[in-house]
C-alpha cells in the first residue's frame, strides 16, 4: 500500500535534502556559433540545403530531410508572420506574474504559407494580452526589435522581441 502525503505532512517524516550541481558549458558548434555572431551584428543567418533548397533557421550543418550537408549561409529577413502566440502568467518556477509575458513562434521571410517546415524562431512578441486573447496577433507581420549594438552579446536575447510592423 502506498502512502500519499500532503506538503505539510512531509515535516513529520525523514527526508534527505540535496542541492544538485549540474553545470554545463554547451559547445555551440559550427552552425550556432555563426548564428550567434550574426545576431550580434543584427542579422539572422540560416543555412541552405543545396538539394531541396530548404533554409534552416536556427541553422544546422545538415539537412534532416535529404541527409546532406547544408552548404550556404543565407541571411533571412528579421521580419515574419506570427504563427502562434500565448500570454504567460507564470514564471518558469511557477510563480505568479503580474504582467503576462507574451511569446510565440515566427515564420521568417522568405517563406510561404504553404511550407510545412520553414525558417522560424521562438521568441517574445511585443503586444497586449488582449491581442493574444482575441487572436488578433495571429497571422500578423512582425519585425525584430534589436537591442542597441553596444548591448548585444551574441545571444538570442540580442533581439528584445518581435513587434507588429
Amino acid at each position: 500500500m502506498v502512502h500519499p502525503l500532503k506538503e505539510e505532512e512531509l515535516k513529520e517524516h525523514f527526508t534527505v535534502t540535496y542541492r544538485p550541481q549540474a553545470k554545463y558549458s554547451y559547445t555551440a558548434g559550427q552552425a550556432l556559433s555563426t548564428f550567434l555572431r550574426g545576431l550580434r551584428e543584427g542579422k539572422i543567418l540560416g543555412r541552405k540545403c543545396p538539394r531541396c533548397g530548404r533554409v534552416y533557421v536556427p541553422p544546422r550543418l545538415y539537412c534532416e530531410d535529404c541527409f546532406y550537408p547544408t552548404s550556404q549561409w543565407v541571411e533571412v529577413k528579421d521580419e515574419g508572420i506570427v504563427m502562434t502566440a500565448v500570454a504567460s502568467f507564470i514564471s518558469w518556477t511557477r510563480d505568479r506574474l503580474e504582467e503576462p509575458e507574451i511569446v510565440g513562434t515566427i515564420r521568417l521571410f522568405p517563406s510561404s504559407p504553404r511550407d510545412y517546415v520553414y525558417p522560424g524562431l521562438f521568441h517574445r512578441i511585443c503586444c497586449s494580452y488582449d491581442d493574444v486573447k482575441s487572436m488578433r496577433i495571429m497571422g500578423k507581420t512582425v519585425r525584430a526589435r534589436w537591442k542597441p549594438v553596444e548591448k548585444r552579446e551574441g545571444s538570442i536575447e540580442d533581439i528584445e522581441c518581435f513587434e507588429v510592423v
Binding site: Y26, T27, A28, G29, Q30, A31, L32, R60, L61, Y62, F67, P69
Partner: peptide, 18 residues
C-alpha cells in the same frame, strides 16, 4: 571537441557510417 556541438559530431559519425 571544441569546434563541433554534439549534434554535429553525431552527423559526422553518421556520414562516415553510411
Amino acid at each position: 571537441v571544441h569546434d563541433l556541438s554534439f549534434r554535429e559530431m553525431m552527423f559526422e559519425a553518421a556520414q562516415r557510417a553510411f
